[in-house]
Amino acid sequence: MNRSDPIFHIIALIILVLVFFLIWNFTNLIPDAKGGNTADRAVQDTLSIIYGHLYKMIPICCVVILLSLAVAFFLEEWLPHKSLQYRIIERIIAILASIPSLIYGLLGIYLLVVPADKVSYYQLTIIVSLLVMPYTIQSTQKAIQGVDISVREAVYALGANRWKVITGHVFPHAFPMISGGILTAISRVLATAALIIVVCDWKIPESNSTSSFGFSSSVVVLLLSALSLSVLSSLVAKNVNHINLNGIV
């Protein structure tokens, strides 16, 4: 990766600070959320609304992303590309990945908000996996396909087995692009969450916060982080091209 790219660093830094800030606040402030002055409270409201919506999604996202990586590697490294299974699965994933996240957002509204106030893990998992899995699988597939075939053969020619080739070469070479795909997938989740909050005034059962400032600013924060994740992921992807153009693989 091109370490001298300043924008890359700045944005990465901002995101890290944001994430750190969120974690810090939730671990420290939520118990006494109603104390302090109004400005403090507004910030706390914002954060607790975001947190209220996201805290269940974080573990789901992690599991779903790991699963997607496994599926992508299975498809690309184990299934012969001319086999029927590969072609069918690959098509299904491509179609699911091409559906705009807005559609999944609407599905989310229908499943999560309309029936009840209570958000079940089951429904949330369905939506998050639909949002994340096809996209991550597809981008990981592309990343794996992008690994220079000659490097792969050179490793095999030294007596490596498939596992060594994947862990030692395919994954490291594809990693920048894989992480770019994951970042975009997460940003899709954040943006969709913002959509649902805005459209449906999505309630958090555990919180009795009603501050309207906190409400709209939470949407803004979600959208901003979604945006910066997208920018970050495109920068990561751009850096990949950079490496390939510079020759050494």
Binding site: S150, V151, E153, A154, V155, Y156, A157, L158, G159, A160, N161, H169, P172, H173, I248, V249
Partner: peptide, 29 residues
């Protein structure tokens, strides 16, 4: 296993394919 064979029959390709590692680690690999 094919990997046992390739350990005994090495290959140099038509273009240089160094790995993204140091010179030392390339050979040590």
């Amino acid at each position: 296993k094919a990997s046992e064979i390739t350990k005994q029959i090495g290959m140099v390709f038509h273009k240089p394919i160094p790995f993204r590692k140091s010179i030392y680690d390339n050979v040590a690999y």
